[in-house]
Simulated assay, not measured.
Amino acid sequence: MKTKFIPLLLAGLLTGSVFAQSVSGDVQRNVNQQARIEEGLKTGQLTTKEAGKLEREEAAVAREEHKALKDGKLNQQEKNKLARMQDKASADIYVEKHDAQVGNPKSVSSKRMQADVQRNVNQQQRVENGIKSGELTNHEVAKLEKGQARVDHKEALAAKNGHVGAAEQRNIQHAENHQSKKIHKEKTDDQVRG
């Protein structure tokens, strides 16, 4: 009996580890893409409007991550779909950064967007760290990605006209504060990755 139990236990642990690696890799791509958007704003390669368009795409990726992880599992079809969406978002970031449009990184609007996108990088990094440490389950990551999709959507709406106003930024910051609290709550509860 013991000889059958140990391989099953090891298989279960390895499967959980594979899921964690897959989810962590997905979240790491979110971190990288947000960092590329922020860098594009800082260098003037992206206008505020272009960054807003890219944030709309990031929101779609986060919504799909939420949907895929809702059941706590990430099957091969879901992994493939997320990879395709991430690949498209990556290509779109490249295209927008290398087109003829240039932004003014010193404008108030761009600085607001830079700060908001930097906060996305930080929050996604906290989620990835929670996955790697075992503090976050896939169900918790799903909830957090739904919240991140809301933040990204607010950023996209604010930048749609190419200008992020003070009131729009306060609205985004409110959503980011809410998301930050959710990340802290999920990372410090009693649930741990199995």
Score class of each variant (00 low, 15 high):
166 A>I: 12
51 A>H: 06
100 A>F: 13
53 K>C: 03
170 R>A: 09
93 I>G: 05
172 I>K: 08
174 H>R: 08
120 N>L: 09
168 E>M: 12
90 S>G: 15
160 K>V: 00
158 A>M: 13
139 H>R: 11
144 L>A: 03
110 S>D: 13
86 Q>W: 14
63 R>I: 03
159 A>Y: 12
89 A>E: 12
90 S>L: 06
71 D>Y: 13
97 K>G: 00
85 M>D: 13
79 K>M: 12
86 Q>G: 02
152 D>N: 14
126 R>E: 09
126 R>M: 06
112 R>Y: 07
148 Q>A: 14
83 A>P: 02
118 Q>N: 14
69 L>I: 07
89 A>I: 04
153 H>S: 11
129 N>Y: 01
79 K>G: 06
129 N>M: 03
169 Q>S: 04
87 D>S: 13
71 D>N: 15
52 G>Y: 14
52 G>R: 12
76 Q>T: 10
49 K>H: 02
50 E>F: 06
169 Q>T: 06
133 S>R: 10
69 L>D: 04
89 A>S: 14
104 N>Y: 01
87 D>E: 14
53 K>L: 10
83 A>H: 11
154 K>M: 02
74 L>F: 06
93 I>D: 03
160 K>L: 07
100 A>R: 13
123 Q>F: 09
158 A>F: 10
126 R>Q: 13
67 K>Y: 11
101 Q>V: 12
77 Q>F: 00
121 V>M: 03
138 N>H: 09
94 Y>F: 01
94 Y>L: 07
170 R>N: 07
86 Q>L: 12
117 V>C: 11
60 A>E: 10
171 N>W: 05
136 L>A: 02
147 G>M: 12
96 E>M: 07
52 G>N: 11
170 R>S: 03
145 E>S: 03
108 V>P: 05
56 R>L: 12
108 V>Q: 08
125 Q>D: 11
83 A>R: 11
162 G>W: 00
135 E>P: 00
111 K>S: 09
73 K>P: 00
131 I>V: 15
154 K>F: 08
140 E>H: 03
130 G>Q: 04
65 E>P: 01
111 K>E: 08
161 N>S: 06
128 E>F: 07
109 S>V: 09
109 S>M: 04
84 R>S: 11
163 H>C: 04
139 H>Q: 14
53 K>Y: 06
98 H>V: 06
166 A>L: 11
163 H>P: 02
147 G>K: 14
167 A>V: 09
60 A>C: 05
154 K>D: 09
159 A>T: 04
100 A>Y: 07
68 A>V: 00
120 N>H: 14
108 V>K: 13
116 D>C: 10
113 M>L: 15
54 L>K: 09
81 K>C: 07
174 H>D: 12
152 D>M: 14
118 Q>S: 15
91 A>Q: 13
62 A>F: 00
155 E>D: 05
132 K>F: 03
156 A>I: 01
119 R>G: 10
129 N>L: 00
50 E>W: 14
61 V>K: 02
106 K>Y: 15
145 E>M: 02
157 L>F: 07
53 K>R: 08
63 R>F: 07
95 V>T: 03
129 N>R: 06
86 Q>E: 15
119 R>Y: 02
